[in-house]
Simulated scan of single mutants.
Amino acid sequence: MKIINIVGARPNFMKMAPIIEAMNKYPEQIEHLLVHTGQHYDEKMSKSFFDDLGMPKPDINLEVGSGSHAEQTAKIMVEFEKVCLQEKPDLVIVVGDVNSTMACTITAKKLGIKVAHVEAGLRSRDMSMPEEINRLCTDVLCDYLFTTDHFADENLAAEGVSKEKIFFVGNVMIDTLLKHKQMAAKSAFGEKLGLQPGRYATLTMHRPGNVDNKDVFEGILEALHEISQEVPIVFPIHPRTRKMADQFGLSHYFKSGDEIKGIWITEPLGYLEFLNLNMNAKLVLTDSGGLQEETTVLGVPCVTMRPNTERPITCEVGSNIMVGNDKNKILQEAFKILSGEAPKGRSPEKWDGKSAERIVDVLLNLF
């Protein structure tokens, strides 16, 4: 069985790493190639993630680079078609919900190649999010859908997907977290920065709904500034967020330099560095998807600054609280946590570090 594994952005690396490791246990049955579309590529950061996760260097890099959603998707399709025609795989595996996920799915299917989607069935019901469009298109086309929780199974069933295509395997990103948790703890990255466990917060924020409107962005920053008077907030700032803060004249909310106080910005961090920060934080504030899952397993309270989530399991059983971008709700929930009223939460079913093994077992049986 010849498989092409697709990655396009850093969150994909975390999901693909354990799958590749599981495939390597069956060299006689599985031949696999790793294709990096180059959708998000930063030499320093990508190398850091590949090194941290112990991933092999990509066999092929399409080097499509940045551009509008249409440009990027089109470039990936053109270049990936050449790879498929040359390599003639039996299966293409895509993960997550980035443009590479959808583009490679469409390309493979038009060539009659079967496609499997890892992390299928997640739905936010928010069509203003490009990721939601990518998820819907990908899941309609895929032959095998590997899901993380019961909500995803229910979403696919409601959309008319045959039960034979759906496989509940758990969360591969948690495979990566559990494997590297001890290594991240040893790195003591937070302590090297002068942070004391449980006495700081971490922040990620980049979504257009939060940073592209000045009034909304400033309201969030006002709330974060107030929180940062109680505990410093460490913010590995996203390039998009930095750009919009400069454009709106809001950069004065951020602190940098040696003294950690207020909303303290750093450059983007490697996987182990950021995991170390999050596992020792008092709380995490975010508008990302993956952090909602990671904090649930780490047992760290998470305040999600979005009106919806494609990962409701993290609210049902985990430590995730949805607040939208309302300043007062952000403050209310953050100060509850700081005063000791944090949700405890527990890990969802099959988030046990063995999801990738289940995926490979299914593929070996199918092929």
Rank of each mutant, 00 (worst) to 15 (best):
S100H: 14
V83W: 07
R311C: 11
I6V: 09
D352S: 03
G112C: 15
A116E: 00
G160W: 04
M173K: 01
E273P: 13
R123T: 01
S48R: 14
F13S: 04
H238F: 00
I6T: 07
A356Y: 04
F50V: 14
V231L: 14
F235W: 10
I260P: 09
D153H: 00
P239G: 00
V64G: 11
P58M: 15
M102D: 12
A17M: 00
T202W: 05
L363Y: 05
K75L: 13
H117V: 01
I233M: 03
K44F: 12
P301I: 01
R135Y: 09
T138V: 15
E259R: 11
T314F: 03
P197E: 14
D326T: 10
G198M: 06
L34P: 03
G340L: 04
F50Q: 05
L250F: 05
T148C: 09
V35M: 04
K186H: 10
K181L: 14
A223P: 09
P307W: 03
E164P: 07
F49P: 02
K181Q: 12
M279H: 13
A342E: 04
L331C: 10
K282R: 12
L272I: 15
M55I: 04
K186Q: 11
F151G: 02
L250V: 00
E273D: 15
M16N: 06
I263L: 08
L85V: 15
T309C: 02
